[in-house]
């Protein structure tokens, strides 16, 4: 069986399985029940993307700051980032979102409003993803060999030129694929913001389900919408990995 056929058959099997699941439901499958809720679902979809981009941006910035701290010669900074990383690695994302919204946030904001709770939830995601971003920066910068630094020194590049023409272009190539993987993690993780009543995709679908009782239809629609973003993202990641590989 060639590669293309193998993939087509595999996709077919999963579609078939979804079909079996649909048929075996007690109520008949009726997508028209969802009509009239397009705006609500679209708003949820948009909010998922919106919150994910903010979390991506925040975690990239914070991850870079933590990378600088971990690369610092000051021993305390190094220890601080290690302890932070261990705490985060041991914490489930749901716990982090709850902690930020209902424990840590209220310690600094007096009776946070609903909107502030949502922001705190996104901050929870940012903090949760930060150590993973730090790791990406660490591996990207460490992949520039000592010999390359020697060559830059030998040829007489200024510090600015080193970063502008040699280090950053390579770091971006190494950084992008895992960064996109993390973005996918953020998008999937953002569904947990629904526990804060943030109207992202999962929460919007729950509203539709409660109003229409079209559980299967709404659920499959939601699943498909997540996959519409995450599958192209992972495919693009693989493409970039191949195209931008330096060795």
């Amino acid at each position: 069986m060639n590669k293309k056929v193998s993939y087509l058959v595999s996709v077919g099997i999963f579609i078939l399985f979804a079909g079996v699941v649909v048929i075996r439901q007690r109520t008949p499958f009726n997508l028209s029940l969802l009509s009239g809720y397009e705006t609500l679902v679209f708003e949820g979809f948009r909010n998922t993307i919106y919150a994910s981009f903010i979390a991506l941006f925040g975690s990239v910035v914070l991850g870079f700051i933590f990378y600088l701290l971990s690369a610092s010669k000051v021993r305390f900074f190094h220890a601080f980032t290690n302890v932070f990383t261990e705490i985060i690695y041991g914490t489930p994302l749901l716990v982090m979102i709850f902690a930020m919204a209902f424990v840590i946030g209220p310690a600094f904001i007096n009776r946070p409003s609903q909107q502030e709770v949502h922001i705190l939830g996104v901050v929870g995601i940012i903090i949760y993803i930060t150590p993973y971003m730090t790791n990406i920066f660490k591996s990207a910068f460490s992949s520039i060999s000592d010999e390359q630094y020697m060559a830059m020194d030998l040829f007489g590049f200024t510090p600015f030129q080193r970063y502008r023409y040699i280090i950053i272009p390579q770091v971006i190539r190494i950084l992008m694929p895992p960064l996109m993987n993390n973005f996918s993690l953020i998008i999937k993780g953002s569904a947990l913001l629904s526990v804060l009543s943030y109207r992202e995709l999962f929460y919007a679908i729950q509203i539709v389900q409660s109003r229409t009782f079209a559980f299967t239809e709404a659920f499959l629609l939601m699943w498909a919408l997540y996959l519409i973003i995450t599958i192209p993202l992972s495919q693009m990641t693989r493409w970039l990995e191949r195209r931008w590989a330096l060795e």
């Binding site: 390359q148 060559a151 390579q170 190539r173 330096l246």
Partner: peptide
């Protein structure tokens, strides 16, 4: 600036 250097593993900038 008066030196040319050829490293063990070429050490060209890979990008």
């Amino acid at each position: 600036k008066t030196v040319g250097f050829v490293f063990q593993n070429h050490n060209l900038f890979p990008h």
